[in-house]
Nucleic acid binder design. Sequence first.
DNA 1: ACAGTTCTGAACATGAGTGTTCAGTCGATC
DNA 2: GATCGACTGAACACTCATGTTCAGAACTGT
Lengths: 179, 179
Amino acid sequence: MSVQSILDVATEVLLAKPSASLGDVAKAAGVSRTTLHKRYATRHDLLVALSHDAYDRVEKAMTDAQLDVPGSEVEAALERAIAGLIPIGPRIEFMYRQIGLDDVPDLVARYEQTGEPLLRLVRRGQEAGIIRSDMPDWWIVSTLDASFYSAWEAISVGRLAPLDAPALVMKTVMRGIGT
Amino acid sequence: MSVQSILDVATEVLLAKPSASLGDVAKAAGVSRTTLHKRYATRHDLLVALSHDAYDRVEKAMTDAQLDVPGSEVEAALERAIAGLIPIGPRIEFMYRQIGLDDVPDLVARYEQTGEPLLRLVRRGQEAGIIRSDMPDWWIVSTLDASFYSAWEAISVGRLAPLDAPALVMKTVMRGIGT
DNA sequence: ACAGTTCTGAACATGAGTGTTCAGTCGATC
DNA sequence: GATCGACTGAACACTCATGTTCAGAACTGT
């Protein structure tokens, strides 16, 4: 069982049941508890590793989405970002729900810097007149996050097709639900 | 310390730290652990009581918001609903994050019926042509929930004024972030 | 002042998760 | 086939939350 697979399974198990024991995680990962302890000495270490892995993936998705574009292409870049985030929905959900890791300076720092690219993109969109300027930039980002999260949730319960998600999120967020 | 206050404090403590012990909860509520155990025999009982309390409040907010209006007034009703939900943000966050209570039939039933009024309102809005019909009703509701939740989060960290929230959510949701 | 109720603090047994150790097994490499 | 490393299962001590009990204190209304 590769390290990556263990992180995958651990994310899944701990999302479904945050109080799951390390024994549960090990069993689900097809690994002995001893081995798990060898890789991650304590439960805390495992949680930190999972968080770092989640940040790694979000950062990679943001880089791949090439968000540093001129204002006129903001909308396309946004859709690329959303499309890139969809497959790593569980990781993001994990980051989001994980509480009590505020005492790890590395993670706090990454939290702030991981959101930067999207924030910059939104600002560029506002300057280019594509995104409303009568709302704060952080609120726009927050709205994007929330809509993406809704989409991920709908996907995870089987109500929304993954391939439909980016366009739906874009339409909803950009034009709203009103007629 | 009244029962209601205990539920308030318990919600707060368990939101900040889901793994908090009953001792922590009791201390925060200014009550002895013995007394807490007398009211709620087990931790599970306490969590169920907290959930029921949260549902009670959401249902009351929905009733107070008078959502059963003709289609032409859907928008105003929506804003009333959002305004009513803001003050009980912590309860809703608790319901949302609480996992592992799926084995309580009462709660599952309430979950489904608590969302009904808003879903009906959205459908009425769609029929009246005020809300887009090219998106599923459940997605509209999901979007509303997500935006409300974003607002609550912003309020809880002090970035958004509670009184500004309903209008901001309405504008964002109905008209989108695009120009 | 009294009786009845509630709350408290302390103690206790229990169970579960955690972290550690170690001898034995498996598999790959040379 | 011998060696080295990784993995395993079992056992162990330890900590901590939980649920229970009980005698005494604080508070209630009469």
